[in-house]
């Protein structure tokens, strides 16, 4: 599988990067999705715009009650980042189990979201945490909730000239959460994230991997959670990892396990 021919640009600034992007000039970071898509012929861009040197896409910081994660941060970076481990241990733990150790070293959180891979642990978790993404183009900047950004399988609400700059997660001191998944191949069959505000009791459950996009529900309390409703609301994709009926069953089992883990979390 030889890669098709392409040009590579390595801009040092955000302005340069944005000026280079276009219909056939696509952002390139870790390549864990893009290079595979190019190998199998699904994409054949003229130019890859390497965004790894753009300072705005790097690092993690806390700002105005939000955790701001540069889009080029790798899964491995985030699993070990001291600030993430301190303020959002749930995300650090999820990142430590994405793909395999090489994918974690190469793959970025921004690329993961932009490719809208249906079996992403990260998107499921970020929707539970009410995260948003910042998109910037030469003409301006906009912010979108991750749950609105992921429009369909392998389809995110991003224009060709836009770059995902960062992921922002509201920091809520009274929040606790859990993520569980069932996985027999290189991607999960089902992943369930649950996040609760312990002050109000309100909680959100997100079911990912089982269908084309994550399904989420908000409830006023854990006692209100209707596991049967949720497992019938998901739209499972039948594949080698199981039938529709099996995946609905797994969904119910893993929602219950996520709730059990939530009760054990601090």
């Amino acid at each position: 599988m030889t890669l098709p021919d392409f040009a590579l640009a390595r801009p040092d600034t955000l302005e340069e990067a944005l000026a280079l992007l276009g219909d056939d000039q696509v952002p390139y970071c870790g390549g864990t999705e893009l290079l595979l898509a190019m190998k199998v012929g699904l994409q054949r861009p003229e130019t890859l715009v390497d965004v790894k040197r753009v300072p705005e896409l790097r690092g993690v910081r806390s700002s105005h009650g939000e955790l701001v994660i540069g889009g080029a941060s790798t899964h491995d970076d985030l699993s070990r980042d001291a600030l993430v481990r301190e303020v959002l241990p749930l995300l650090a733990e999820v990142e430590a189990h994405v793909g395999n150790a090489r994918v974690r070293v190469q793959g970025s959180i921004g690329g993961n979201l932009c490719f809208a891979e249906p079996k992403s642990d990260v998107a499921t978790t970020l929707i539970a945490l009410d995260a948003s993404v910042t998109l910037q183009s030469s003409s301006g900047r906009r912010t979108l909730l991750v749950r609105d950004f992921i429009v369909g399988p392998y389809y995110a609400d991003k224009e060709p000239g836009e770059l995902l700059i960062d992921v922002r997660i509201p920091l809520v001191a009274t929040r606790r959460g859990a993520y569980v998944k069932f996985q027999v191949t290189e991607r999960p069959t089902v992943g369930v994230a649950v996040v609760q505000d312990t002050e109000t009791g309100a909680c959100r459950v997100v079911v990912g991997a089982v269908g084309e996009i994550p399904v989420w529900r908000d409830w006023a309390s854990v006692a209100d959670i209707d596991v049967e409703e949720l497992s019938s609301a998901v739209d499972p994709v039948e594949d080698l990892t199981g039938s529709e009926r099996y995946k609905r069953h797994l969904t119910a089992v893993f929602v219950r396990r996520a709730l059990r883990d939530l009760e054990r979390s601090s």
């Binding site: 590579l8 390595r10 390549g31 864990t32 290079l35 595979l36 190998k39 390497d50 790894k52 491995d76 150790a101 090489r102 994918v103 070293v105 190469q106």
Partner: peptide, 18 residues
């Protein structure tokens, strides 16, 4: 698998330029 700056990468899907 090879190590780049000590981290493991899949060299089949890692551009030499990187």
């Amino acid at each position: 698998t090879v190590l780049v700056d000590g981290s493991p990468v899949s060299s089949c899907t890692y551009l030499a330029i990187d």
